[in-house]
Design a binder for these strands. Structure first.
Lengths: 248, 248
DNA sequence: ACCTGAACACCGTTCAAGT
DNA sequence: ACCTGAACACCGTTCAAGT
């Protein structure tokens, strides 16, 4: 056993092994639990050994994002553009649901790695193949925003990140509800509509919300494509900073 | 002078003063520069003194977000719903542009404070007043996502967070461009279209992108409202987890 | 009772001393 | 030349000792 661990230990550290261990660690303990020191421990290595394969923690996080993006299924080029985009984005969604920490990690990245660019390029390519101009594709990509990575911000709740709300008794619950109805009538109405009565057991169907927004955006994009939409910038290229024109 | 600083020092610390100092500090040094210790130093106080007004750093961040949300202009109820939403969201945008750290801070919040809920309630109220059902309002709010706070993710660049890309000579630049064109043809096309030729000076007009997406979403929402859209969940409330129905 | 210095258990990263 | 222990300059937060 001591011998085996000795053999293990001699297996040379490389970037791939570092990144895979980091991803595994993040899956287990969340992104905040991933420290250089803890990762080193996981790899049965001295902390400084990691710096041989990664110049700083930021680079580690870049690499971790690359690893999860690698799990996204390749695009199905036989599909009609909208289905193709949807399939690709939903595949990304599968991935970020498997790796909950990936949302935060992706959002925090300030550097676009080749892997990131390649993925974005492929999504842009699906739109271009669907007859979108480069101009419109650009704006649609921005409008999709983080949804191209398969996630959208959680507006009301944050159920996926182990938050234990304080348990209150039924009376307290009712009082809270009354308070909520008085102070936040519109949110209350929304919650009531979403739960058909029992607001206390509110929980969004995140998947549905994601799809709703995705289709709203894609349908809107399609409409603009069909009416040959061009950005004001494209018409007058010298003008870099545009003030929004309400009449448009 | 020593006397004056002594008088200053005796001014009792309170939550308001703590939060305002924290916001000011974040404005100056960014959110990562805001540590309990550094904030204490700024307030000319021992670190532990802050914990009298805030139980943990998370609570400090909650409070900081509340402070900036307080700077958002009140809704103009005389406006037609779409303009009212736009005015409110653009006012929020002014605020998050003034406080660059606020995007990250808002995204990282896991707790919805009364101030946060009040703002969300007011946006929901504008939609409701515009004839949106509670059901549709709900989904539209989700679709707007972080755009209700006046920001959207930066997809391609991150110019606003002091990043100094390595300067390369003209020849290196040209080589990079060729490489980019070969590896990321669609992104390259986008960039070319956005800069009318000189891809090296690419920079998105973030304001325009924001407005484009906002209008795409609001126009799409209006269309759904006009056709009396109802969510499948609203029709069959027992069914909580919906699979997306392509035919819809 | 209130306040606070020191301490605890961590960080990411540098650097010089060891092989 | 490579590797690594110790050290540096930080964190957020606890806690016991001081007033």
């Amino acid at each position: 056993m001591a011998r085996k661990s000795h053999v293990r230990r001699r297996e040379p550290l490389n970037l791939d092994r570092v990144l895979r261990a980091a991803v595994e660690l993040a899956d287990q303990v969340g992104i905040d639990g991933v420290s250089m020191r803890r990762l080193a421990q996981q790899l049965d290595v001295v902390p400084m050994a990691i710096y041989k394969h990664v110049t700083a923690k930021e680079e580690l996080l870049d690499g971790m994002v690359d690893v999860v993006l690698g799990e996204i299924a390749p695009p199905d080029l036989s599909l009609e553009w909208k289905d193709a985009v949807r399939q690709r984005v939903l595949s990304a969604r599968d991935v970020v649901l498997r790796h909950q920490w990936a949302r935060t990690a992706i959002e925090s990245r300030t550097h676009r790695s080749p892997t990131v660019l390649a993925y974005m390029d492929s999504v842009a390519g699906l739109l271009r193949a669907g007859g979108f101009s480069a101009d419109l594709t650009h704006h649609v990509m921005h409008a999709l925003g983080n949804r191209i990575w398969g996630f959208s911000p959680e507006l009301f709740d944050e159920t996926h990140r182990g938050n234990t709300q304080p348990t209150v008794d039924a009376a307290g619950q009712a009082a809270l509800m009354e308070e909520a109805e008085r102070r936040y009538p519109h949110i209350f109405a929304i919650v009531m509509a979403a739960t058909s009565g029992d607001a206390s057991e509110y929980g969004c169907d995140e998947d549905y919300e994601f799809m709703f927004a995705l289709d709203l955006l894609l349908d809107g994009a399609e409409r603009l494509r069909d009416q040959q939409w061009r950005s004001p910038r494209a018409s007058s290229p010298s003008q870099r900073c545009l003030t929004y024109d309400k009449g448009t």
